[in-house]
Design a protein around this nucleic acid. Structure first.
Lengths: 355, 355
DNA sequence: AAATTTAATGGAAGCGCTTCCAATTGAGGG
DNA sequence: CCCTCAATTGGAAGCGCTTCCATTAAATTT
């Protein structure tokens, strides 16, 4: 009935802690799980024993006993049926997987084609088959209110990454203030003397990317500049879409002096096109992106971009999910965490226009 | 004594399988673990029941019962104390973490500064503190024979990723045939008519990168070409080192017509320099790299490179590690797995020299 | 100070699996 | 056809933890 191992060459167990702190196993468990009804003195005694023995809970035993599967899933979107090859996705995945390992959870990563008509069913089905305790959604799934509602009905807790304003009313989320980021980036370029802008947007169901555009527009309005809609294009976040859309901009004789793209890959594509057409960056046009993936430092010239800590964002999302799964959801309304961004100014926007 | 759940709304357990297939729990366990002494007919009956019930073992229960900690670690190197921001590292990490989750292992990722004089102690210390069952080493740790020997003494099983010829004698490893890859890539360029070559190497303690150079040299010799040592430089795998070393090449009036770099980031840096000096790629010089990270498609022109499936390599390394941890090491000599590579021919080497 | 109520605490029963070991079966030998 | 030995099989004891529930100690109320 008691699995203390007095002096044996094994990891200490909860019973070793109980014995050393002279309390029952149950009390130790309470302390470890921040349970109620433990006197401070006892709590301290237990914690001291934990420290002295260098005790760490056995997560497998814990999950077995508690009956929680401790399995969660991360859903990433891909246009193709193959795995997306972007650093954005990798960073999110690493952040989530690392935090899960730390918390003793198993995380499974799924790629779902967001263009498949049955993608919602696919997600629900994967949850059912694998019996996930909860899931993390990335854009555009994190903006899909119908999906979110179905998940709620099925009692599958979900946390969104970079959910937009609407979805945030229905789902816990973690992300930066994309609208503010768009505003600040634009403001910076305006301060550098730019008055005419082009913008290559992302996919329209990614609300966070749309918010970047909203912030961009607000900055123009606030600074008394007008937007030429002819220089706003719809891309899909890929390098290729950056190439193609920027060509339309560059081929125009009187193109704007500044181009903002919804993400770094798109901006890298624009840079690619500029090279091909022999348009000098930043002298003839400045280009900026979002995300600060490694791409931004491996293009010429290095790309000005908005840094958002993707690994940290994913880690926070997992923390929130696990917290809800373990302690229940105390809040009635969704919890939305806003993570700070900062603008990395590099050479792609180095030119300042004299007024 | 029996935890079958007849019809309850829960995942099936081993006892459900036992009941359905009319054998004891122990026999089911044997079948699931490929144990000996089970008649084929019985084995089949059990497997049928598994399929019918959609049974999947509960990994936490299994690891609890078997008494294995099921925690392993991945060690990545970084020159800095901060986290490396390369896709190479990310891909390895994702491959390892995913496979661990699948196998019910917890994987922890550590960054160790390989230039710190005490890096070996640091790794050993981390293993001791965390009581890892085994570890995965990436270059240059996977080539460090002293480290490998210390680990063996401490009875910490390790698997190396891309270990070189020497280390492979002492450690299980997974990687491609880097020498052959270097040979084939060079051969390809020779077939395109190139006769004069430059090479930017990686760090010298990364044996896999050195092997790429060895293969390069052999291809030259085999084809009767001689190597001009003045065009061989030592880099450190970074974009920046690609910029700097390639400048030395490009500034020479009679530079070679082909440049091979030890990895993609270096090659991207060389491309960057070529742009800056207005040297046309591939017309004036062709450039190629190794690894096929996303970088290679986000530079101009797209980079010819050797694709190695990094996620798969890491996954295999984890599989091997787990297999040894669970079944013991039956082999007396280390097991070295060679994974296929293939050459991605892109525009950076598109020019063919007329003979 | 006795009677209640409430906060703390610990005993014991599993969670789903592996594994030791005893029991059973089947073959082959005499 | 009985005996011996190896090949199969299953019973039962945990692995280290959570949690139900009973018990005890402390705090409040009469």
């Amino acid at each position: 009935m008691n699995n203390a191992n007095n002096g044996a060459n094994k990891n200490p167990t909860i019973d070793d802690v109980a014995a050393l702190s002279k309390v029952g196993r149950t009390t130790v468990s309470r302390v470890l799980n921040n349970g109620p009804n433990v006197r401070d003195a006892v709590r301290k005694r237990v914690m001291d024993a934990v420290k002295q023995l260098n005790y760490r809970v056995n997560v497998q035993a814990r999950s077995l006993a508690s009956g929680k599967s401790r399995q969660i899933a991360l859903f990433n979107a891909s246009d193709f049926d193959s795995e997306p090859n972007s650093y954005y996705t990798s960073a999110i995945e690493i952040g989530a997987l690392r935090k899960c390992a730390e918390l003793g959870f198993q995380a499974f990563s799924h790629i779902v084609n967001q263009n498949s008509p049955s993608y919602r069913n696919r997600i629900i089905e994967l949850c059912a088959i694998n019996n996930y305790q909860g899931i993390i959604l990335t854009p555009p799934f994190s903006d899909d209110v119908s999906l979110i509602n179905i998940l709620r009905e099925k009692n599958i807790h979900a946390v969104g990454i970079s959910s937009g304003n609407i979805a945030r009313k229905y789902i816990d989320s973690v992300g930066m203030d994309d609208e503010l980021a768009g505003y600040r980036l634009t403001e910076l370029l305006i301060k550098n003397g730019h008055k005419s802008f082009a913008f290559i947007k992302g996919l329209e169901n990614h609300m966070s990317a749309e918010l970047r555009f909203e912030g961009f527009k607000k900055a123009l309005v606030y600074n008394g500049l007008k937007l030429d809609e002819n220089f706003v294009f719809r891309g899909n976040f890929t390098f290729k879409s950056g190439i193609e859309n920027s060509l339309k901009i560059f081929e125009s004789p009187n193109h704007p002096s500044a181009l903002i793209c919804a993400n770094d890959d798109t901006a890298a594509g624009a840079l690619f096109s500029a090279h091909r057409l022999n348009i000098k960056v930043p002298e003839e046009i400045v280009i900026a992106g979002f995300d600060d993936t490694p791409v931004s430092e491996i293009v010429w010239p290095p790309l000005t971009t908005v840094h958002q800590p993707l690994k940290q964002i994913a880690a926070r999302a997992v923390e929130r999910l696990v917290s809800v799964l373990q302690n229940g959801n105390s809040d009635s309304s969704p919890k939305n965490m806003i993570i700070d961004f900062n603008i990395m100014v590099r050479q792609s926007t180095a030119s300042v226009i004299e007024v």
